[in-house]
């Protein structure tokens, strides 16, 4: 089991741990995120990155930050899971990439970028992964309307005469 006091001694006391049943979450400030994840990868044996995802806390009660980026980690030997949560803010939400630690982060970071517009500095190929390349919005942000801004109607109409 990861020891939070040891982590706090190493990365500062802003680190906090919350727990619900067997779900353990470390909240970490953005500037220390890469150092912490690197430590978890190299020293604590979290050799598998399960997922990277994000949450938009716009208009969330008592929320102080706009986006939370969540790294789900798994230690395959010990079977231990850990969630690392990092908050980033507008206007340019940016985090360092973890592609150098886990290669699987490649597409996950592209997905987070595509859906939330959070950039990952140092990512080798940060393009959209799901939406079309011409798409200009970040659809999972809470200020983006569910029905879009007319993208789905913006195509040429083919009639029998032109086909």
């Amino acid at each position: 089991m990861i020891d939070i006091t040891a982590l706090q001694a190493q990365f500062g006391s802003e680190l906090s741990l919350s727990e619900f049943r067997d779900n353990r979450r470390v909240i970490c400030p953005a500037e220390k995120a890469h150092a912490l994840l690197s430590h978890l990868y190299h020293a604590a044996g979290f050799n598998y990155l399960v997922d990277i995802t994000a949450v938009d806390y716009l208009e969330w009660e008592n929320a102080t930050d706009r986006f939370g980026v969540i790294y789900a980690l798994l230690n395959m030997e010990a079977g231990e899971r850990l969630y690392v949560k990092v908050f980033v803010n507008d206007p340019h939400p940016t985090l360092p990439t973890v592609y150098n630690l886990w290669r699987g982060a490649d597409w996950m970071e592209r997905e987070v970028y595509d859906m939330f517009g959070i950039t990952f500095a140092g990512h080798p190929d940060l393009r959209r992964i799901l939406s079309p390349d011409e798409f200009t919005a970040f659809p999972l942000r809470k200020d983006y309307p569910l029905k879009g801004r007319g993208e789905r109607h913006n195509f040429p109409v083919i009639t029998r005469a032109d086909s």
Partner: peptide, 15 residues
């Protein structure tokens, strides 16, 4: 699927 990503009927764009 009344969302931003799904075309609301292909008949809008092809016969």
């Amino acid at each position: 699927f009344d969302t931003y990503a799904v075309v609301q009927g292909v008949d809008r764009f092809i016969p």
